[in-house]
Amino acid sequence: QTVVIGDTTYHLNNPEAAQQIAKELAKKYGLKVVISGNTIKLK
């Protein structure tokens, strides 16, 4: 699972954790979560 935040890319072996982290950050910073395949992007 790949999480992309701005110009930073994180690789996590746990998809659920990756999605949870993405949701928390999106909520905290008012970002939009875009999931395509096994890549999660925060914009």
Rank of each mutant, 00 (worst) to 15 (best):
Q1D: 08
Q1F: 15
Q1V: 15
T2P: 04
T2D: 07
V3P: 02
V3I: 14
V3D: 02
V3K: 02
V3G: 02
V4W: 08
V4E: 05
V4G: 03
V4M: 10
I5F: 10
I5K: 03
I5T: 02
I5V: 06
G6V: 05
G6F: 13
G6L: 07
G6W: 13
G6S: 05
D7G: 13
D7T: 14
D7K: 15
T8R: 14
T9K: 08
T9Q: 06
T9V: 13
Y10Q: 01
Y10N: 01
Y10T: 00
H11D: 06
H11E: 05
L12I: 12
L12W: 11
L12A: 08
N13W: 12
N13F: 09
N13I: 09
N13S: 12
N13K: 11
N13L: 12
N14D: 11
N14F: 10
N14R: 04
P15M: 13
P15S: 10
P15A: 13
P15F: 14
P15Q: 08
P15G: 07
E16A: 10
E16Q: 10
A17K: 10
A17I: 12
A17E: 13
A17D: 11
A18K: 02
A18L: 11
A18F: 13
Q19D: 05
Q19P: 02
Q19T: 09
I21G: 00
I21S: 01
I21D: 00
I21T: 04
I21N: 00
A22H: 00
A22N: 01
A22F: 10
A22K: 03
A22W: 09
K23R: 13
K23G: 05
K23M: 13
K23L: 13
E24P: 00
E24G: 06
E24W: 15
E24T: 12
L25G: 00
A26E: 06
A26C: 14
A26D: 02
A26T: 03
K27T: 08
K27V: 07
K27G: 04
K27D: 09
K27L: 11
K28W: 11
K28R: 12
Y29D: 01
Y29Q: 01
Y29E: 01
G30C: 14
G30D: 02
G30H: 07
G30S: 04
L31P: 01
L31Y: 09
L31A: 04
K32L: 12
K32A: 10
V34P: 00
V34R: 03
I35H: 03
S36V: 13
G37M: 05
G37I: 05
N38M: 07
N38V: 05
N38E: 03
N38H: 05
N38G: 07
N38D: 07
T39Q: 06
T39E: 07
I40T: 01
I40H: 00
I40W: 04
I40P: 00
K41L: 14
K41D: 03
L42P: 00
L42Q: 01
L42Y: 04
L42M: 04
L42N: 01
L42V: 08
K43T: 14
